[in-house]
Amino acid sequence: MNTPKADPIKPRVAVHKFSSCDGCQLAFLNLGEDLLTLAGRVELVHFAEAGPLDPDTDVDVAFVEGSVSTAEDLERIQHIRQHSGLLIAIGACATSGGIQGLRNGVFGENWVTQIYSHPEAIASLERSTPISSHVKVDFELWGCPVSGPQMLAVVNSLLLGVTPRDNADKVCTECKRRGYPCIMVTRGIACMGPVTRAGCGALCPSLGRDCYGCYGPAENANTGALAVQFRSQGLSPEAVVQRFQSINSQAPVFLAAADRIRIKSHD
């Protein structure tokens, strides 16, 4: 009689959504066949976008998309942290506060009343903040949205019991490996690639357009030197500020870069 081969215990995985557009969850879903292969190795217990719903259960790995932007988010992230072995923040919202972080510092009652016909239905916190502002985060995957291959690499590393590779190099490294001539040099375009974290595969430069920093700051990002170059390429101080105040406006390195330019231009 054959003894049935014992199935190794599959890690339990949850994908949680906070204040976000769902684009990073879609990066998971868009994996298609790869997601099915992956589903065979893990137990997906909570992933609203894909079907399974069990937000309160204990898991080995929790992926968290979105920023903390409401009073409810504040409570929920604590709960999730307590019930998760590893917590991985995915995407610009979860790592820096996201595009909705643009309201930080300028949020006012009058905005809400001007924009919404039922302002009483809005219950947002004054600031949109990254997950790491509230709980311990074990690994961050930057990007707006994160890329499928990036997600797979992280899951794969965890399944193999190794620390995921944290590539904080600049987008330029990916641009050059793919053989794209630098558009700052050939066309004088203000590209954020030299201060932005790799991971996208230099998607925008591959199409002849500038990187807009959606993967957040790279390590040792010399934003001051890049701002000087943007100015010499003809950008106004306001335009340079806007380059840094976009998807990842609240990432400390980009926020500081924008503040320095503002202070300088008011001198």
């Binding site: 600049k170 330029c172 050059k176 630098c182 030299p194 040792n220 010399n222 001051g224």
Partner: peptide, 9 residues
């Protein structure tokens, strides 16, 4: 170093 982006280009 104040001018270099350390982009590796």
């Amino acid at each position: 170093a104040s001018r270099c982006l350390a982009c590796g280009n």
